[in-house]
Each structure stands twice: as C-alpha cells, then as structure tokens.
Design a protein around this nucleic acid. Structure first.
Lengths: 154, 154
DNA sequence: TATTGTTATACTCTATAACTATA
DNA sequence: TATAGTTATAGAGTATAACAATA
C-alpha cells in the first residue's frame, strides 16, 4: 500500500456514512437486505417460506435421499442446526425422514407429494421475484453481476 | 413407499443445488458469507469488532452529535435495537452519550479520544481487508460490481 | 475411534409493545 | 399528541458440547 487515500463520502440527507460507501461489504449488505425484503413481500407472504428454507428444499429436491449431515455440509451450517429446519419442513408435510437402507444412523431426506407440489408453486413465485429484480439491470449486467459475485466468493 | 428408489447415489462433492445457481440472491448470499468470514479473520479477531459495529462507529464518527434515533434510521433498525449497541460501545469506552443542549429527551453520540484512536486502527485493518478482497477482481471489475450492487439495491 | 442425529444451552440480531420523560 | 430513550420479551438463526446408537 502507498499513501492513504481519502475515503469516498456520500451524503444521504444531512447524514454521512463515512468510509462505508467505499467498501464492497457495505453495498453487498444493502443489496442483500433489499433483495430479502423483496423476497419476503413476493414469495414469503404468499408461500410462507424464507430464502433459507427455500434453499434447503431446493437441495433436498435436487438430491433425493440426501442425509442430514450432507445437507448441513451443502448449506455450510452445523449438523445440529439442520435438525430444527428438517423438523419444520417435516411438520409442514413437505419432506419426510426415511431410514437409510445402508446405514442405520442415517436419515434420508425426501420430498413428499405435497412437498413437490408446494415447491413447484414456490419456484414460480421465486422466478417472478427474480424477474422483477433482474428488471433493474440489463441482461448483460445481470450476467456480469453473477460472474463478479462468484469471483468474489471464490 | 417401497416402489420409490434413489435415482442416484449422492457422493460428497457431486451435489446439485437445483435452481439456486440461477438466482442472484444465492450468489449475493455466498459472496456476503465469504466476505464476512474474511472480515472476522482479518479485522474481527484483531480489533474485536463486527461489520455491524464498525458501521455504527463510522456513522457516529462521520456525524458528531448524532441522536440515537437518527442512528437507528441511518442503519435501518428500530430505536430499541440501537440501545444495546450503544451500551456496548460506551462500555468499551469508544463513545459517550452526551445530553443534548436543545432537547432533554435526546442523547448525542460522540466518539471518545480512545474511540477515535481505536477507529483509526480499525480503519487500517478494514482497508487491508478490502484490498485483499479487491485483489480477486480487476480494478474495473470492482468498480463495476459496486455500480451493479447499488443499482440492484435501488 | 469416528460418525449421525439429537438435545440442551447460549449468544447475536432483530422486532413489538409498553413505559418515562420530555416536547 | 407525538417523540426519544429505555426495558422486557420473544423469535429467528447460529454455534458448542455432550449423548446414544451405529459404523
């Protein structure tokens, strides 16, 4: 690093955010909060689901017979954290825990018929939500944003 | 139940994320988690601060005499949520609540000398953290990413 | 010994509602 | 009536540690 640069400052009303507008994390968080609020309005209120739960359902649906520990690894959370999530989804009748045929410690997660139907409905809502978001960008910019986010996440 | 068989054995690593990779929110969240972990390692562990607390300090530093309610508005959280944050920062000797000269209901937030020194140290760590992140992108791509995130957040 | 699912516990972040002291 | 700060409380979301059953 060379000389200290003066941080960028933006004004919102009479209020300054200091050096925050010069940080990627600041804009990442703002975009995320905005997107989550939009998701809550357009998908959450209609289908009673959060981005996190929808993600879990997607991974379960895309990997039939997935063990809870594998799901935890995929979502990058602890095994113990998954338990209550699976409890919730099972209580709503969307998934079932099936005993594994090869390992009696394991529970294989599967979507129920209701789960498949509800997920299909959720997917339509999510696609509509995504389309509304994407409308803020050109198709090229949306592609570019995805590429840059993947690059940043490693 | 007996008729349903697993279509494929799921091995570690060969896991599908379904439609998630087609969603901006998925990539936004992954980038955010990656960035927060990097922040925790490079800034948090050294200076004992989180992105949220650092943001609060930045806004307080950039707006001397800010009332708690204005800070709450700036951070887009409830007044009641701010109380414990201010308690924490005050307990660490980084800020003080000063009685307002014009409104006896109001507390004006100010950095202490220690707060100014600590914040300057944090800022150096944050800039180093930012530089490491930015190294994953070309300077043009970093600029472009910021632009696209602002556009997405409205 | 190691792993799977589970429980108990705790900590963070956030919100709502009610209270007090002012305005 | 409305606002500023506070308190009490609750609900997600997450983590750690310990446990029984099984590998």
């Amino acid at each position: 690093m060379t000389a200290r640069r003066k941080p960028a400052i933006i004004e919102t009303g009479s209020l300054s955010y200091g050096m925050l507008p010069g940080l990627l994390g600041f804009h990442l968080r703002r975009a995320q909060v905005s997107l989550f609020k939009h998701f809550a309005r357009t998908v959450g209120q209609v289908a009673g689901i959060t981005p996190g739960l929808f993600g879990m359902l997607q991974v379960i649906a895309a990997n039939p017979g997935l063990a809870q520990s594998r799901l935890a690894e995929a979502m990058e959370v602890e095994r113990s954290t998954i338990v209550k999530v699976v409890d919730q989804l099972e209580a709503r009748g969307l998934i079932v825990r099936e005993p594994s045929a090869v390992d009696r410690r394991s529970h294989c997660l599967e979507l129920t018929e209701l789960g498949r139907a509800e997920l299909a409905r959720m997917e339509q809502l999510v696609l509509a939500h995504e389309a509304e978001l994407a409308a803020k960008l050109t198709p090229e910019d949306r592609q570019e944003l995805t590429r840059l986010l993947i690059q940043l996440a490693d």
